[in-house]
Structure formats: C-alpha cells, structure tokens
Design a protein around this nucleic acid. Structure first.
Lengths: 277, 277
DNA sequence: TTGACATAGATTGTTAACAATCGTGAACTT
DNA sequence: AAGTTCACGATTGTTAACAATCTATGTCAA
C-alpha cells in the first residue's frame, strides 16, 4: 500500500486503457496473470469502448462562463463589479458548485479576479496591464494577418465577410452593446480564420482584455473600432496583399490605443460619487 | 426582491467599494439615505480597506498544479495517464475539493483533459494539434526574439544566461528529466524576458504542449533541444542582431519539428503490450 | 468630528455524506 | 472463440450542512 503510493508520488502514473480485441486481452491476461499484481485490468472495457465524440457535452457551467464573457465583451459588466456566488446562483438557477467552477474558469482566463475570502470581481486592468495587452497584440496580429493574406484559406474568409455584415447591421440599428462586442470579435474571428485553435484562444483572451481596457480608459465615442477599418483590412487580405493588410492592422491597433487616456482612469462602477449622487 | 434580481440579471452589477474618508461616507449616507434603498453601504469597510497585496496568497491548489505541470514538462507523466482524484488526494495530502480545483485549472491550460464521469487524463495531442502548436510557435517566437534583439532589456537577459548555465550543468550531470524541462523552459524564459505577462503565459502553454508532443512523437535521443542552439540564439540577441536571432530560432524550431515522426505515434503508457509484457 | 472596538450578519471556504455514472468481470448465449 | 447481459464495485458528480472569514453598524472614547 505504501509502496504503491510511493510509485504514484514519483511518477503520477495510473493504468490507462486502449481499444483492443477481446480475445487478445484474454490471452494477455492468461499469459501474464502474475504481472497484474495489485492492479486490475478490464476485459470488456477495453474492447467495448468507442470514441464518444462528446457531442452534447456542455450544458454545464460553460453556459455561465459564456454569459459572463459576453457581458464583459459588451461592456455591460464594468470592471471591479462584484460577482457574488449567491447572486449568480439565483440568476442562473444553478447550485453553488457550478457557479464556483465557472468563476474559477473565468479567473483562469483573466476575466475576473478571485480574492480569497472576499469573492470574485470583474478584472480591472491597470496601466501596465493595458500596455502589455497592446504590446502582445501588436506582436501577434501583424504576422497573423500577413499569414492570412498569404495562405489560401478561401473558405474561412467567408466567415469574416459574414461577420462584417453583422457589424454593419448592428451599426445600422445603432445597438450599442452589439456593436461593441462584434467590433471586438472581428479580431477573434481573424484568428479563427487561421484554423489554429491556440491562436484563436490567445486572441480571444487578448480581445476580452482589450474590451475591459477600452471600457476603463476609453472615451465613450471610441468604444468601438472605427467603422470601415475592419472592412479595409479584410479587403487587403482578400486581395492577397500581406504588406497592406499588416500595415492597416497596425494603424488600426494604434487608433484604438491612442484613443485611450491612460492617466484619467474612469471608474464607472467603482466610484461612489456616481452612485450616491 | 424580484426587481433587484431582474436588475442583476441584466447588468450583473453589485455595489463595489472604494477607500474613502469615514466622515465623507457618513455625510453621503445622511444626504442620500433614500437613494440607498435595498442596497447596503458600509462605513468602515469603505474607509478601513487597505490594499493587502496578497503576498502569501498561494499555499493552495497552485502547488498541485505546479507539481503536475512540472511532471509533464519532464515527461515523467505520459499522455493519457489517468489522474484519479483519490490518488491525487493521497499523494498531496489534501481534500478532494483542492484536487478538483487543480484539475479544472489544469484542464483550462490544456495540460489535461476532463472526461465527464470518467476522470482526468493527461492531454494526448494528436497530429493536427501538434501542427497547430508548431504553427503558433513559428508565428509568435520569431517576432518575439526579434523584439528582444532590438529593445534594450539588459537586466532580463541575465536570467537567460543564468538559465543556460543551468542547462549546461544538467547536461554535464546527465540528468535526463532536468535536461528536458530546462530545455523547454528556455523558451518560456525567452518570453519572460519581454516583461510581458500575456506573452509569457502563452509561451508557457505552448511549451508545455510541445513537451507532450515530443514525448509522443519524438524519438528518445532528440527529447531535448540540441545542445548549443540555445546558446547561439542568446548570443545573437545579446549582440543585437535581430535577423540572425530570428533565423536561428526558426531553424531551431524546425529542428525540433523535423525530429518528430508524426505517423508512428508512440503510446508510451497507453500501450498494453508495454505493461503486460 | 474622528477613530477604535465589538457584535451581528452576510459571504465564502471546507467537509462529509449521498446520488449518479461508468468500468469490471463473471455468467450466459450464439 | 466471440459477443451479450447483468450485478457489483469503484470513481466521479452533487448537495447540504458546518466552519472560517470578512463586512457592516452601533457604541464608546478621544
């Protein structure tokens, strides 16, 4: 017992399983019964197992994560807002455990901060963090669009044109929150167009953080990206012009960043004066 | 009550707090008592609060995460290895809750996969994922070292030279696991040298995944990066030669990738033949 | 007016028991 | 020999009660 634990301690290893023919397993078990020792090896489990592709697999706390993510992207959830467990339980009609897991996931994505014994608060990036986010985006996005403009990813570009149509529609109807969210998600979809899951996830995180930053340091009129810059970037990509695409994107990011006032940080919800009159 | 809940549902907002003078708060409360309605506003909490910088803040499940992360980096934990809750509880001497939180965090970092009702398994990247990882690294790392070679980050370069010393020492003593881990962490520290937290986190994740991939698809002799390539890259950075640094890094990554055999995937622990004799 | 206790209340952290699910191995059928 | 069914055991998922912590508010002294 303590020896088994010792082995585990050093290697963290367990018996895994693999699909195999049933008889083959039985043969092995007969031939090497002594080797099995304390471990137990299944028969049917090895043969019967099939790849369940986990289709309907996320009716869980991912919904909560998505809802809160969306609220942050639309700047309806202001930085420093407290997310109390009880309130979230009522809101989503789930148990405390689900809420807890969701909060942990959100904190691992940097969307919220978890303070021990004090609760969860929407992340409130400071000046240094804001600079990091933009520096990271300026490092990653240029080679990204360059690659998109070079490689032939015809199909995935359709997603981008569709997205811009959505943006235009939202702008036409003047739906503020929708505009803000779509405006950010354009960049996320830019990354998705590469078909690379890692790049997509990184961009998604960076864009979410950017949304918080714009909400904190931005003035109200430039909450969303300038209207036509996305269109122009996409056009450059479609016409296979890497230089132009990269150039447009850099100036686009610069526009966003220069629209921020890093010194006069607005504290939308954190300022008692705004609430107490 | 239901109106409060309705507001919450749409905005997810709560009363936050800010450090303020005690008398100022009292004045506000007297002047605007009616505005406070259902909400409660503290007095001392607003004034007494000080920035506790959460120094000794992580004696929690981060330890478990770190231990498992390290085991993966050193290729002691093979892909597909099952991590059962009970076993982890014994190993680390903590309750099931901590283990559960740690597993959730690890899964959000892509280090393990969580299968519903079946447990946690060390991530087992497939061919497509491996390609994504290398594509992402080749997108990010070149501009990263280029930037390092341009910008003057003298101090942080010391960390890199120290690290290479560690690598050499480990190689001299022929400590396999140590060599493998340090070999990967060189790239992580490359990212840390930028001083940008986001870039650091991304690289850390990519390097961890790379470690799993090399363990799966690599032959035993090229488990670690070739000895002197790291040294040369660092030299190029120190001599402020962006072109050379970028070039060396690209060929370095290509070395690693070309050392993999994507077709004949080794299943170190997942292969019953290896266990059953 | 300001700051310092102290108590009451609310919120989060933890634990342990219970429920649901799945893997296991045998008996049984073809 | 190969496949199927079924109950048992083990593992994971969930819940609810309890413990620990922090916040809120009033009272008291300076």
């Amino acid at each position: 017992m303590s020896t088994v634990l010792a082995i585990w301690s050093t290697i963290f290893k367990d018996l895994p399983y693999t699909p195999l023919s049933l008889s083959a397993v039985r043969r092995h078990m007969l031939l090497n019964k002594s080797i099995l020792k304390g471990h137990t090896v299944s028969v049917n489990s090895l043969a019967n197992r099939q790849d369940k592709t986990d289709l309907s697999s996320e009716p869980d706390e991912n919904l909560i994560v998505e809802r809160i993510y969306k609220a942050v992207m639309e700047q309806r959830l202001a930085p420093n807002t407290k997310l109390s467990e009880a309130r979230l339980c009522e809101t989503f009609g789930v148990g405390r455990m689900r809420v807890r897991r969701a909060l942990l996931l959100l904190s691992s994505q940097g969307i919220i901060d978890l303070h021990s014994n004090r609760g969860a608060y929407v992340a409130c990036p400071d000046k240094a963090e804001a600079n990091d986010v933009f520096a990271a985006r300026m490092l990653i996005e240029p080679p990204l669009v360059r690659q998109l403009a070079q490689g032939p990813s015809e199909i995935s570009l359709a997603l981008l044109t569709d997205h811009i149509a959505l943006e235009d529609a939202a702008r036409a109807q003047n739906e503020r929150t929708e505009i803000i969210r779509l405006s950010g998600e354009f960049h996320t979809k830019l990354a998705q167009a590469t078909g690379n899951n890692f790049i997509s996830r990184m961009m998604r995180e960076l864009v979410t953080r950017t949304s918080l930053i714009v909400g904190l340091f931005g003035s109200s009129e430039n909450a969303s990206c300038p209207d036509d810059e996305h269109t122009k970037i996409l056009q450059a990509i479609q016409s296979r012009d890497p230089e132009q695409a990269e150039k447009l994107l850099m100036s686009h990011l610069n526009h966003i960043q220069s629209g921020l006032d890093m010194e006069v940080r607005q504290q939308p919800q954190d300022d008692l004066a705004a609430i107490l009159g």
